[in-house]
Design a protein around this nucleic acid. Structure first.
Length: 157
DNA sequence: GCCAACGTTGGC
DNA sequence: GCCAACGTTGGC
């Protein structure tokens, strides 16, 4: 299957691209997705080798900081059953059925310069990107190959 | 800090 | 099944 491309949002105060670079093997599990649309993308469409744009949301410095690659396809997000986790899902725990999954991603290339949200907005070729649409809250979004390449270029890769 | 947009919940 | 109320996201 052809390589696909994604944008994944993270609040840098919680987990930044820098944190990913510092993680063992520059790899992390992407726990805590609690939205069915985003889950379905990870569960059904993520393939090993897919490209990821790492986006910092809810920040004064919102934007894309680097790329990553999918190194493990969807598997159960056990944090949903972990009472000590911020991502504990009481409802799912009571039913003893866990609907949530996560994937593993590995840092690929840090951008030489971050591609800020303002920079994304200024680039007419990116005008129809989902992340730039008003009210776009989906934390895992599909990205076209063209957009991925344009952004990697803007990031200095 | 404000608030618009969105997803979910629950009463009816 | 409708929809108002609510909680959350995230840009500004």
């Amino acid at each position: 299957m052809a390589q696909k491309f994604w944008l994944m949002k993270s609040e840098p105060d919680v987990f930044s691209y820098d944190d990913l670079l510092k993680a063992p093997s520059k790899t992390t599990c992407w726990e805590g997705v609690r939205n069915y649309q985003a889950r379905n993308l990870m569960r059904d469409d993520f393939q090993i080798g897919d490209g990821v744009l790492f986006y910092h949301s809810n920040s004064d410095d919102a934007g894309i900081y680097g790329t990553a690659t999918v190194v493990k396809t969807a598997y159960p997000d056990h944090f949903a059953f972990d009472k000590k986790s911020d991502y504990f899902d009481e409802d799912a725990f009571k039913k003893q059925t866990n609907p949530w999954v996560m994937v593993d991603i590995k840092a690929q290339s840090a951008f030489r310069q971050a591609v800020t949200r303002a920079r994304l907005q200024a680039e007419s070729r990116l005008a129809d990107m989902m992340v730039l649409k008003k009210g776009s809250r989906l934390s895992v979004q599909p990205v076209s190959e063209d957009h991925f390449r344009i952004i990697a270029q803007l990031g200095g890769l």
